[in-house]
Amino acid sequence: MKVGVVTFPGSNGDTDCIETLKLVEGCEPQLIWHKSTDLMGADALILPGGFAHGDYLRPGSIAQFSPVMREVARFAASGGPVLGICNGFQVLTEAGLLPGALLRNQYILFHCAWTHVRVSSNRSPWLEGVEEGTVLRMAVAHGQGNYFADTETRRRLVEQGQVAFEYCDPEGNTSGESNHNGSVDSIAGVTNEAGNILGMMPHPERSSDPLLGSADGRVLFESLVRSMAAGAVGR
């Protein structure tokens, strides 16, 4: 299965994604340059972390005009699995592919730490087969990861099972303390209605090796391989 990782100018998590995917059986990762309009036959796409186009103006705001984004939108509309990590999540919300927006962290500062997230809904090829309520230990590193959506949108997200991850403590309880960036309802990741597009602030690619602190993030990539093999993802 080919997984395309998009490099915007200013992306810096692209190599980490490639290196991590190389370790996942059944994945064949490849880089896609942001000026490209050819997805090179990718079966799934990842928009990595970083500071696309410098994050100037608003994170992700200028990246949405990179030529590749038209293809990403088309690919997503046809049901292809897309994962936006950190800055990739910001790009997806700015491009209107995911609901909500990411604001400056509650405590203003950039924050790099290990955190826990609870899988709230597994209605996505990236989480298929992962039991809801599972707690994953993951790295976070961002200055603008404070998720915001209005009340009506949040109601819809919950009803339709679009809240993929919530920040929590190691036991799986959400609280003000575990919600390190102040996201509304502790939301750490959401999907679109169909579930094929997932955006998340934590970094699964940095949480896929026990030597580096956690291997919990690997479950996303393994789920993807499983659901693709099962033909569960329509395109």
């Binding site: 186009h53 410098g54 100037y56 005009f65």
Partner: peptide
Amino acid sequence: DPQGLAVLDGLHAL
């Protein structure tokens, strides 16, 4: 003004 330069490029791209 790096931010200004980035926005300039973005506007040109559009």
